[in-house]
Design a protein around this nucleic acid. Structure first.
Lengths: 348, 348
DNA sequence: TCCATGGGTTTGAACGTTCAAGACGAAGTA
DNA sequence: TACTTCGTCTTGAACGTTCAAACCCATGGA
């Protein structure tokens, strides 16, 4: 029973032509103040809303931003994307865009989905997450001239400046965490990370290594690398804490590994460590400030996801609102690098 | 540089009319086999994809399903929606639909968003989550004749049969959990829930109460109600375990409360309980099988979110594909009630 | 007086698709 | 033979919007 008010209805009631109504909505400055007001009144009165499909057909702009929603890999980190997505939807709406979801199992099928979407729904732009070395998705979009922003910097060096991106400074985060531990009196501070090469993982490791180096502490053999599962974190932490490295604190690349490390630190087999330094209980810091961290009292680094999402929208909108020429030329907006913040809880 | 292949291009190359191409795609049976094949070949060759905007303008169907993405209230439960959303996007794609996101702070603003979306993007249907008593959203959509499905049954009795819904049987879940505890030898089994009235909360409480009653156990004073936060769960569990109720196990309405209960059960102040029955360590079972549950070894009830999402899409698609008559008449498809499954971990 | 200027408005056309109606030939029926 | 039916295909028109161009009228300068 929806009445379906069209621009022609508004025009008729307001006693003007279709085009004038269109002008009131799109380029108000070319319409006489008096007429403009009259039209706006009628628009409100009839509850007119511009039909996207028709507008899109004429202008080629859908006001749609597409983003992929991941299957939560192994649970814990899932909520990060969730929060980012919420921020994105919110910011996009404020800029007059809506968010369209899609899924894909790997890069190849994601590119196939690009083609599908561009052919059918014609989203104005994409937001890519989880960028990695030699990411074929970015190059494909660049190649086709499709506007996009990545949440995650381009890890391949050469592609660096070729598209806009937003990222969180992982190294700055782990550096802050390491300083926090140094301030608490720890000197032998270990790191639980992911195997290299991993853009995100290497970045986070570097902040820890740099900070220890600055403090004049040799970090040789204080690092471990493993895949991102709680059990792996526990094993690696056991290995590190059980050795004669003297480690009393751990910075971890993720909350998953940190939760594992916490288990290890509290395990009976390592009770002697606690007895050895009762003034310095083993400290653990995670990354991402997931709900799990909150639940188990894990100190962790929180990413400003809302801001990151807002930046993505801002950058994308800037490209989309830019002239065709500006879009074609490679003048992509400056990247945005945000700082995570340390949320201190019981674990450190 | 995208070529933008239209139906006219395909028609020209294949040597037929626009309409024939359209028929090949929409009603293949009216086209001669030979012609059909020729057209399909050209479609593949040129990489033609039907333009949604144009199709939508003509047919009034957008092939878009809208759903709200919540701000994760307080963390732990957030990932439930996340997983549901992924399943929804996946199932929708298989049925030829895409998922459009929106946000809203409360029911009123959500209804306002309905109007906005229906006026502009014209989604074919909505999926509502978090249904509750006297939900104004469902009535508004019913009123306007907009197709929708709710994930969560209608809790107001009278509205019961008026729209299709999908839900997970909370009572069946807590009943299974309670039986699991009974089988393990527990008899004094407590329940940590939310204050009544709460559709979901009352339903889950009922499964516990019923099962105890069936086992001939009086559950008076074995239940507690509190808001959904870890600290609240801990306090309530303390209260219940500390009393002389003899409680040795807890079924909880959510993982948040269960995590709190776990803390309480392990707290030094209650060590005497463990000593009293060393054969029966205090058991805790949560609800939702969140990443937190997995991380802390909490036994929990897992909702079949993928199936739930698939059912939502199926029901919605059935309405949308139905004839106009069927849509107008109140013959809404039968509701779907799915069973959660118990994931057993260390805590019970 | 005539023409150029420019602000404000209107008119036709087009975007790509599908609906409704019709055209055409072959085959069946009276 | 003529009329109907059927399968296959084609032709205008329409969905609601915006672009491009034209129109109208008041103003001002030559």
């Amino acid at each position: 029973m929806a009445d379906k008010v069209t621009i022609a209805d508004v025009a008729r009631v307001a006693g003007v032509s279709r085009q004038t109504v269109s002008n009131v909505l799109n380029t108000p400055d070319v319409v006489r103040q008096e007429t403009r007001q009259r039209v706006l009144d009628v628009v409100g009165e009839l509850g007119y809303r511009v039909n996207q499909a028709a507008r899109q057909m004429r202008t080629g702009r859908s006001r749609l931003i597409a983003i992929r929603i991941d299957p939560d890999r192994d649970g814990i980190n899932g909520s990060v994307l969730d929060r980012f997505l919420h921020g994105l939807t919110d910011s996009a709406a404020r800029s007059g865009y809506r968010v369209l979801l899609y899924t894909a199992d790997d890069d190849r099928s994601e590119v196939a989905t690009f083609e599908d979407l561009l052919g059918a729904y014609e989203p104005d732009g994409f937001v890519l997450t989880g960028t990695h070395h030699q990411d074929p998705r970015a190059s494909w979009l660049l190649d086709k001239g499709v506007p996009f922003v990545t949440f995650g910097r381009p890890w391949g060096k050469e592609a660096e400046a070729r598209h806009p991106w937003v990222d969180v400074d992982g190294a700055a985060g782990t550096a802050a965490a390491t300083r926090h531990l140094l301030d608490a009196g720890h000197t032998r501070i270990g790191f639980l990370g992911w195997p290299s090469p991993s853009g995100v993982g290497d970045d986070r490791r570097e902040g820890w290594a740099r900070t220890l180096a600055e403090a004049g502490i040799d970090h040789t053999d204080l690092g471990r690398a493993t895949s991102d599962a709680v059990a792996d974190g526990e094993a690696a932490a056991h290995d590190l804490l059980g050795s004669d490295s003297g480690v009393t604190a751990l910075v971890c690349v993720s909350d998953s590994l940190a939760v594992g490390a916490l288990h290890a630190a509290r395990s009976p087999g390592l009770a002697w460590r606690v007895d050895a330094r009762p003034d310095l209980p083993i400290a653990v810091i995670g990354f991402d400030d997931t709900p799990v961290a909150k639940a188990v009292g894990l100190t962790s680094l929180s990413q400003p996801l809302k801001e990151a999402a807002a930046s993505c929208v801002t950058l994308l909108a800037r490209i989309l609102e830019g002239t065709e020429t500006a879009r074609a030329s490679a003048a992509s907006p400056a990247p945005v690098l945000l700082e995570p913040s340390l949320v201190v809880r019981q674990s450190a």
